[in-house]
Design a protein around this nucleic acid. Structure first.
Lengths: 216, 216, 216, 216
DNA sequence: CATGAATGAGAGTTCATTCAT
DNA sequence: AATGAATGAACTCTCATTCAT
């Protein structure tokens, strides 16, 4: 069984602060959010954040720790499954990815905000490590498919970038996504089941045509 | 004839500040960068930013204005070209996109950082407008291809997301990209010609298989 | 029973800041005083002013609130008193006014400084309201005296201006007052009992001759 | 012949700046007005103020110099006139004062703003000197009237304070004055002839009753 | 265990003034 | 003689953090 981080025990209040912080940071960015904002929104004392987490930066690390392993379990299971073909595994990963990411859009947004900066190196590296680990299964499956010649000789790394990048593109901005897919900036794609199905369908079709098409 | 930059006359010093700010904001984020940092790095007086641009926020707007039209010219040209097939236009757009975005990775990163927040609504909307404008040509070409039945009945919006999203994914983080494509966090993909060709090749192959494959 | 001060609870430190600010603003004006000056003089941290009062402007409002009602109680009592004649009431008001204003020369000076500007409209209006309230009793007594024909048919508003204006004139500038009444710029009239009596005597004599003289 | 200050020659532009500054300082106070505000309002270059007057403070001195002697001429004439009785002289001074002050309400307001502070000592002293000189004639006339026993044994200094203070009180704040005399904050008393006559009438009546009444 | 008070550092911005032209 | 560009200092205010209780 895999564990990304020590299974630290978090009190309800700590969890509450973390969940509030995820929303706040997603809206205003880490630097754009103040501890006072956060304390007010979470209805706790200003000193609580430092008291519980040590510092604002450590709170961010706690957030990552709290949500980081959100992928692993199912991915490893898919990877280890010997009764699935490679393309079935790809499909399963698509289902899983879309599911998990749409379930936590704010956290996803925070991670990407931090990834886009080059500050806070330790944190940056930590986030990169999460990404690398979470994509390694996908990487391995694509490579295996190619080796087995059930997949075309595609570029494995960039194929991964396509799969993840398509989802990220949609998650970039709720209003932008709303405009593009529904011509309505107030449309919320992240909670819309029809949109989720549409996204999954597109990704599967895309991957099928790309990976399976005519393997000469 | 096309023009890449707005007519507004900017002094050398103003341009210098803008270029320095693009690098700084890309590294530390807008909120994470201080005017003092910027002034020191650009080797100008702290008061210059407000003197030239009015405020930190207006500097951001000036940056966007300075680089915003970085796509349009060529795109319109491709769109209007009647001697190209749809798939040739897609290829041309891929060439163009990759070219332009790899040439200005920092600006690209800044835009996405701001897009990931929901603050500064006016600016956010402005950036969204740029994205919508820059993707509208692509949208129109895909739709035309589908109407002409030279393209499969794909999901046009999500196909765009795939194209743009793949590039964005690669631009997300230099070290992440370096690790994935070269197993070396110090590898700089953005200035590497081989990588650029690899990216272009992947995208074209991807789009060809997806759009053209067996239109039954 | 009357209360001179609003109910609001102010800590000792807050009161200390307010009292220091009154002196400072009286000397240098509101705009001429910096929060750093104030903090240094009051021997508190620069951040305390904003911490306690929110902003420099709100500190001003707190000052006004703290001292604004400095008149009312006694005035209402005089007004309501049915056993005094009108001229006795005027005399009592003179006693009261001179007393109160000489006790808080700095606050008095601040109010007038702000009154002389046309900025900060809300504040300006607030101060005007205080003046109007504080003079309304006087107004009403003069009018009553005229109606009862114990006073001459004077101009009630300008008679008020004379009464208040004489006191204000003396409060304008300590050195100017010192020179005029004692030929000594260092003479402090505001703490001098003899001067206070002299001022009261002059005002009473003035009002008696003006209001009572020959009512044909 | 008396001269308060060297008869410096001022160009039209300098006069224009001075007149604009008087209005601006009257509205926002000296510290509340910026040279940029002034330059913009006067439609001149920012550097002009320092170029012409040396500094912001020296501009203030130039303003005082420009308007300071606004009283003297006529006052000296009244004083020296041997064919007028003392009370006639008082009446003439009232006419003159009210006239001059109502003609330049902004300058009057500036002087008092500065008088209310204790800053800029040299300037403060200069202004005090102007006040003392301008009131000396009045002082001398009252004293003479008392000596000649045509006036009562009033308090000469405070009688002056009453005369000047009544006018000042009315000049304190346009809206306050408007409310008191006309129950209308938008009423402009300073340009209203009826109000001027009312003020003069009140002052003369006041001074007559006070100075002349029953000299036992 | 939890908190309100307090703080030094640094933020963005504005200022009067200077200077090369 | 006149000015636009430029600047260092100082402004108000907010910040993450600390600490006595």
């Amino acid at each position: 069984m895999t564990k990304d981080f020590p299974e630290q025990v978090l009190s309800d209040k700590q969890q509450h602060i973390i969940l509030t912080a995820i929303e706040l940071f997603a809206e205003k960015g880490f630097d754009g959010s103040s501890i006072r904002d956060l304390a007010a929104r979470a209805d706790v004392n200003v000193a609580m954040v430092n008291y519980y987490f040590g510092s604002k930066e450590k709170l961010f690390e706690a957030i990552v720790e709290y949500r980081a392993s959100f992928m692993r379990g199912k991915l490893d299971e898919i990877h280890a499954n010997t009764s699935m073909t490679e393309i079935e595994k790809i499909d399963a990963i698509i289902d899983n990815y879309v599911d998990k990411i749409l379930a936590h859009p704010s956290f996803h947004r925070i991670l990407h905000q931090e990834l886009l900066k080059r500050e806070r190196e330790a944190l940056h590296d930590g986030i990169i490590r999460i990404f690398v680990r979470n994509t390694s299964v996908l990487h391995s499956i694509i490579n295996q498919g190619i080796r087995k010649k059930v997949f075309r000789k595609v570029d494995p790394e960039l194929t991964m970038a396509t799969l993840i990048g398509t989802i990220n593109q949609v998650m970039l901005s709720k209003p932008l996504c709303g405009i593009l897919v529904n011509n309505d900036p107030n449309f919320d794609p992240y909670t819309n089941v029809a949109f989720k199905n549409r996204l999954v369908k597109h990704l599967k079709l895309l991957m099928h045509s790309y990976l399976l098409a005519d393997k000469r």
